[in-house]
Design a protein around this nucleic acid. Structure first.
Length: 250
DNA sequence: AAGACGAAAGTGGTTGA
DNA sequence: TCAACAACTTTCGTCTT
């Protein structure tokens, strides 16, 4: 019994595809041609229908995106100001037609990532990806794309921006944090930083600091919080120890 | 047994011809 | 546009505590 079931319902379209489409054939119900005047009337109806559908859909999309930004921000415990900035970035992307061909959630996630970075309270791509349905890779790619198109200044993240937060998450006291910051600053002076991933530097600086302050955490504990691998942590840590040498000491 | 180590192969992005 | 390259990840076997 498959007769008279109509077009499949889809959730991909905001009205689930159930809207009546005003036919573009200028015929009446019996297939006869219709008058000039009626034809003009239908033309206008069709035009309005298109407009209304389009605006409803894009409004819903915008509402959805902003809702997502809000949801993700809450999940990450970000301040309201960040959400505002993220929303503005999203709207800019929208205005420049950058959403086309990308999923809304990805752009929303990218906007949030960008907003955090701008405010110097960066979240890692891992953290953003964890509260969205988008993979880390995709968030990063989308971020890069929209940042470039919108002309956001993309200054590299400093490892320093991650340290207080990571230290808190690891329940480390202030002196360890100070130590870690000091280590990063010295590494920065010696230009051991550029080209390396900031979280890797941050993670290894914290690792070294915990050992120096007698509050040692295992590599695993640190990599779990920071999201870098143990191998990378080791590489950075070895490098810092070698190249900084006695400069590590207070 | 857990933690630390490092080799080897794979991934995604940047750069330079 | 393509190949070389550096940084990072994954996986896994080995050494150290």
């Amino acid at each position: 019994m498959r007769t008279r079931t109509g077009v499949p319902v889809t959730y991909a379209i905001h009205d689930k595809g159930l809207t009546t489409i005003i036919s573009s054939k200028d015929k009446d119900y019996h297939g006869k041609s219709i008058s000039q005047k009626t034809r003009a009337w239908f033309f206008r109806l069709r035009r309005w229908q298109k407009r209304i559908r389009a605006s409803n859909a894009s409004e819903k999309n915008l509402a959805f995106a902003l809702g997502e930004i809000d949801r993700m921000s809450s999940a990450l415990g970000l301040p309201k100001s960040i959400r505002e900035v993220a929303a503005i970035i999203y709207r800019k992307a929208l205005a420049k037609n950058l959403i086309k061909g990308r999923c809304i959630e990805a752009v929303a996630a990218a906007a949030l990532y960008a907003a955090c970075r701008e405010a110097n309270i960066p979240r890692t791509l891992d953290e953003i990806a964890a509260v969205s349905r988008i993979k880390k890779k995709e968030v990063g790619r989308t971020y890069k794309y929209i940042a470039k198109k919108i002309g956001l200044i993309m200054k590299p993240v400093s490892p320093l921006d991650y340290i207080p937060r990571f230290c808190n998450m690891l329940n480390l006291n202030g002196s360890v944090q100070e130590r870690a910051i000091e280590i990063v600053k010295r590494a920065e002076e010696r230009e051991l930083i550029s080209g390396k991933a900031p979280i890797g530097i941050a993670a290894s600086a914290i690792y070294i600091a915990t050992i120096m302050c007698g509050e040692k955490r295992t590599q695993k504990e640190i990599t779990e919080i920071t999201g870098v691998t143990e191998v990378t942590l080791r590489n950075r840590y070895k490098e810092l120890c070698n190249k900084l040498g006695s400069d590590l000491l207070p």
